[in-house]
Design a protein around this nucleic acid. Sequence first.
DNA 1: TCAATGACGTATC
DNA 2: CGATACGCCATTG
Length: 111
Amino acid sequence: MNLLHQRILAVVKLIPPGYVASYGQVADLAGLPKRARLVSKALKSTRDSLIPWHRVVNSQGKISIPTQEPAHRLQLSLLRGEGIEMTGVKVNLAKHHWQPSLETLLFELQF
DNA sequence: TCAATGACGTATC
DNA sequence: CGATACGCCATTG
């Protein structure tokens, strides 16, 4: 659990119900460009239940967790449970892509 | 040390 | 739309 993870998780916590963000987008917002993979690691390793990890998908809007893993089903049901429109394993980004305003970020984040 | 490995992203074909 | 290739980089063995 280091500083980078904390910054990443701080951003993920801001994603509202009914919306999704991509790993790369979260990394950028956390001030860590080119670190999408670090985002997946941070989400994979945290136990904090207050973090909406399921609202993070890949840049194509698809669930990135391998189908075999139980977490894959969980993510799918959690997204559906928030009323997110999906085509199979892919989110309708046109309707549910999170696009925070600059004010929101400056107000919520501490860096 | 060092090579392999990802819940990634972009470019190309 | 699917498949491949590469760039990226912390973690793992």
